[in-house]
Amino acid sequence: MHNNAPSPLMTRWISRIGIAISIACLAFVGVRALTVPSPPAGRPATPEERAEIAKEFARLEPVWRNNAKHKFPGDHWSQDDDFHCQEMIHARRVAANRNIRLSDVFMAIDEGLRQEYPGKPFRRPSARPCKPRAFYD
């Protein structure tokens, strides 16, 4: 295929062009990654809003726990995991409806659980040790 060998000049120029393209690609990716804006996060929630949210999640928790209990009977970690999935979905909904930061919703849940201490919390302030299911297919 290469019966006609390229001239040294051509080889040199190809190499130079290659360096220029490589650097340009790297620079483009780096600059683009650094400068592209993040999606809007919503406003910070007020302490009153967080207290409301905490109560709402506390009220819904037994329902989600019950759903999880029937979805994964006898499998404690999976029940917890399913509960957390429902909690996350609702957290996204709450953040979107109130136009607040998602992290503030999770902070509100955390604050709500801490307020129950040191009495006898009706919710479980922990999560089961990791025990992934053996079968996902």
Partner: peptide, 25 residues
């Protein structure tokens, strides 16, 4: 207590998430 479905949020809140979703025990 955390939430492994949103674990990316907890470190920024200076919190650890007990909730775990790893692939091993």
């Amino acid at each position: 207590r955390g939430n492994r479905w949103a674990l990316g949020y907890y470190e920024a809140m200076s919190r650890g998430s007990i909730s775990c979703g790893e692939a091993y025990m």
